[in-house]
Amino acid sequence: MVNIAVLVKQVPDTNSKIQIAGDMVDLSTVKMDISPYDEFAVENALQHKESGGGTVTAITLGGAGADKVLKGVKALGVDNIVRLDADGYMDSNSLQSVLAEEISSGGYDVVYCGKSAADTGAGSTGPGIAERLGWSSVSNVTEISFDGGLTVTSPAEGGNAIIDVSLPAVVSCDKGSIKVRKSNVKGIMMAKRAQVDVKAVSPPASSVTIVSQVMPPAKPAGKKFEGGDAAQTVAQLLRDEANII
């Protein structure tokens, strides 16, 4: 019986427009959703459980608004849902400390997470937690096999590495070829009644402070040409003006 944890994060829907109010991003009107790669982490966690039995616990870090994401994965078949109650910015050091402590006290054998979250795009959490726990980790995993232990596929220079992973380990997941399951009405009803296990945390102080959030600098208007023959002009510009070819 494997004790499986999966880390999920609530982020702005990737199709949403990001706007700035003052000198910070304003998310008040933005639809929030589970971070896309976390969906693959959840699917892999559930398949791991189905391959040989066990329990899957989804863990998030955030305010009460993040319960929606937990209920969403509960509806997919996750057994337990835990929210580490914290709001506001935490740097990677304080965030990973809190998560690693929860993983450690929960007695988990394996942790799945997305390869990066759609808001920061950093991808630090999986390997960072593994280091703190003294576990192995494999990132950007596209395929997983559960036959006779855990075997994963991860990109390496010039191709893909197929790697045997011994537990305990952290596996951070890319899209790959797996299809993620959808929730059904029964699952959604059950998730509605499910209790989120809310836990207080005491993170260490952050050494990183957000100064401001701004829109990317606007690009000066480019040159636009009509008709396919202009490709010759553009090729010449790439040589003479851009010095690229």
């Binding site: 690009k219 480019g222 040159k223 636009k224 040409f225 009509e226 008709g227 396919g228 023959d229 202009a230 490709a231 010759q232 553009v234 090729a235 010449q236 510009l237 790439l238 040589r239 851009a242 070819i245």
Partner: peptide, 24 residues
């Protein structure tokens, strides 16, 4: 967002791009 934009079908533009690149 383009520095250089070509309003054309790819069928029209790519052969020209290809031969221009060969030349350069």
């Amino acid at each position: 967002h383009a520095d250089y934009g070509i309003v054309a079908t790819w069928e029209d533009a790519l052969p020209v791009l290809s031969s221009s690149l060969s030349g350069l």
